Amino acid sequence: MKYPNRIRVDFERPSHGWLPVKVIMNDFELDIDASDVPVNPIYLLYLAILDVVAGIASKVWWHLEPVGYYFDFTQPQPGLYRLVISYHSDSQVPEFLYETKGSAADIVLPFCRAIKNLDSCKYDEQDWPSLEEKQLTHLSNVIELLKKRA
């Protein structure tokens, strides 16, 4: 089944612990600079992808110091993925921003490709931590698995 909710994800060149992140879906656009403190959100995204493909709900915290955005990934049924984006600040109740559903090609693979594209970008380790080679290889294997299922 085809879904009209394909996501476009771009990670631009990081600098001094900040990563420009752009996520575009239909009528929704999020353009932020995420921090790698206290945890690298790309690593959290990598873990979330592994979990959601295995059917485990997962969350990515894109921290902006001190506020942040959360991406909640779920797989409500085999082959159907759901992404909910919310905004959190210390003084507020989480604010729902956007929700979309779709296939792995619509929801998961755009994030996988963005991670791989970021890895191919040349930047200093002091600007942003890289995933380990074995993690990138595992991600490539997940991409191939999802393509075969599509």
Score class of each variant (00 low, 15 high):
W18A: 13
W18Q: 05
W18Y: 15
P20I: 06
V21G: 07
V21L: 00
V21F: 05
V21P: 00
V21Q: 00
K22C: 09
K22N: 13
V23D: 00
I24S: 11
I24R: 01
I24T: 13
M25V: 15
M25P: 05
M25H: 10
N26S: 14
D27S: 08
F28W: 10
F28G: 01
E29V: 02
D31K: 00
D33F: 08
D33Y: 01
A34Y: 00
A34V: 12
A34K: 06
S35W: 00
D36M: 06
V37M: 11
V37Y: 09
V37D: 08
V37C: 05
V37T: 04
V37W: 00
V39C: 07
V39N: 01
V39H: 00
N40T: 09
N40D: 10
N40G: 03
N40K: 11
P41A: 01
I42Q: 00
I42M: 08
Y43A: 08
L44H: 09
L45M: 15
L45R: 07
L45Y: 10
L45T: 15
Y46L: 05
Y46C: 09
L47Q: 14
A48H: 04
D51T: 06
D51Y: 09
V53E: 10
V53R: 10
A54W: 00
A54H: 03
A54M: 08
I56H: 14
A57C: 05
A57Y: 03
S58V: 04
K59E: 15
K59I: 14
W61Y: 12
W62T: 10
W62G: 02
H63I: 12
H63M: 12
H63P: 05
L64E: 11
E65R: 09
P66F: 11
P66S: 13
V67Y: 05
V67N: 14
V67L: 02
V67T: 09
G68K: 14
G68V: 06
Y69P: 06
Y69W: 01
Y69L: 03
Y70L: 11
Y70Q: 15
Y70A: 12
D72V: 12
D72F: 14
D72P: 00
D72H: 13
F73C: 02
Q75E: 13
P76N: 09
P76E: 12
P76T: 12
Q77C: 08
P78A: 04
P78D: 15
G79C: 01
L80Q: 13
Y81S: 08
L83M: 13
V84M: 04
V84C: 02
I85M: 11
I85Y: 01
I85L: 07
S86K: 13
Y87D: 04
Y87V: 07
H88N: 12
H88S: 14
H88Y: 07
H88M: 05
H88K: 07
S89Y: 02
S89H: 04
D90I: 11
D90E: 14
S91Y: 09
Q92G: 07
Q92N: 12
V93D: 15
P94C: 14
E95T: 15
E95A: 10
F96T: 06
L97C: 10
E99F: 06
T100S: 14
T100M: 03
K101H: 11
K101V: 11
G102I: 10
G102T: 10
G102S: 04
G102V: 13
S103F: 01
A104F: 03
A105H: 03
A105P: 01
